[in-house]
């Protein structure tokens, strides 16, 4: 017993170091395995408050960019209206079969954004009190941003598309072939990778990539980016496509969060089907 105590006292520095180092590694491993329940994340009142103060100040420097983005989006929406003809914006057209009515958009401001780490996250200023839940899709006028991963009362952490854990269903706009969108940290933050598109698909550089609508997170047709380069995988039966993101991930500003009202129903249905 005495020996043990002497050993502990003599090596107390090393033991404390070892304990804290293992604890840190533990948190990291925990956050990699159970990525839903990390207890050290930026959705808390301290970091939320600090980032909120900073954003309030830095917003003034980006006002022009945000305004231009809004005008661009308005122009696009107005053009769409004119194309469809004013007569169609009529209450009689909105029937119960219209699937787009199942989605509700919430707005939020980005308080923190990262794009240089292998696992990038955004912090937004809306949380469970404002109706934000896990697994909601996050977009801007320019396309997809990511998926809500953790929420606190007033903040939420969003897993960016620039995250090595990210897996999003995406498809080609022209041909409807779909694949999985992921990110390789060695490539830069302007590009994501689309895999599993079968080689039968006819791909050209510059083709548009949109979300596939195979999950209940994103509706079909949200812009992702354009094809920049493509190669084949090892077995040669599927493409590996470098997609240039339409969004500038380094400057996000304001985002929309998509709530799918039918999500519970869809998930329940899938669950019962699988159990049978």
């Amino acid at each position: 017993m005495r020996q043990i105590i002497i050993f502990i006292v003599r090596n107390k520095n090393f033991l404390l170091f070892l304990l804290l180092f293992c604890f840190s590694l533990g948190i990291t491993i925990h956050s990699h395995i159970f990525h839903r329940s990390t207890f050290i994340n930026s959705a808390n009142f301290i970091s939320g408050g600090v980032y909120g103060t900073v954003t309030n100040i830095s917003d003034y420097f980006s006002l022009k960019t945000y305004n231009n983005r809004l005008i661009d989006e308005n122009i696009r929406l107005r053009e769409e209206l004119l194309k469809n003809g004013i007569s169609e914006i009529d209450s009689t057209v909105t029937s119960s079969t219209d699937s787009t009515t199942n989605y509700v958009l919430h707005r939020a401001e980005v308080y923190k954004n990262s794009y240089k780490a292998p696992k990038n996250y955004l912090l937004i200023n809306k949380g469970s009190h404002q109706g934000i839940k896990e697994d909601m899709g996050v977009i801007t006028s320019g396309g997809i941003i990511g998926i809500v991963e953790n929420t606190s009362a007033n903040y939420a952490v969003v897993q960016s598309v620039l995250n090595t854990n990210s897996q999003i269903n995406a498809s080609l706009k022209n041909t409807n072939h779909f694949g999985t969108l992921s990110w390789n940290e060695k490539k830069d933050y302007r590009k994501v990778q689309l895999t599993d598109i079968p080689k039968q698909a006819n791909i050209k550089i510059g083709d548009t990539i949109i979300t596939g609508g195979m999950s209940s997170i994103f509706p079909k047709g949200i812009l992702v980016g354009t094809v920049e380069k493509f190669t084949f995988n090892q077995s040669g039966n599927a493409y590996i496509i470098d997609v240039k993101l339409n969004n500038d991930m380094t400057n996000v500003g304001y985002v929309y969060i998509i709530e799918n009202k039918d999500k519970n129903e869809i998930e329940q249905l899938l669950e019962t089907t699988e159990n049978e």
Binding site: F21, F23, L25, I27, T28, H32, I40, V50
Partner: peptide
């Protein structure tokens, strides 16, 4: 770490150079 959503990576690196 608390601010940057990096798990415990900064804590581990810092305690290592502290030691």
């Amino acid at each position: 770490d608390l601010f940057s959503d990096s798990g415990g990576a900064h804590a581990a690196a810092s305690v290592l150079i502290g030691y």
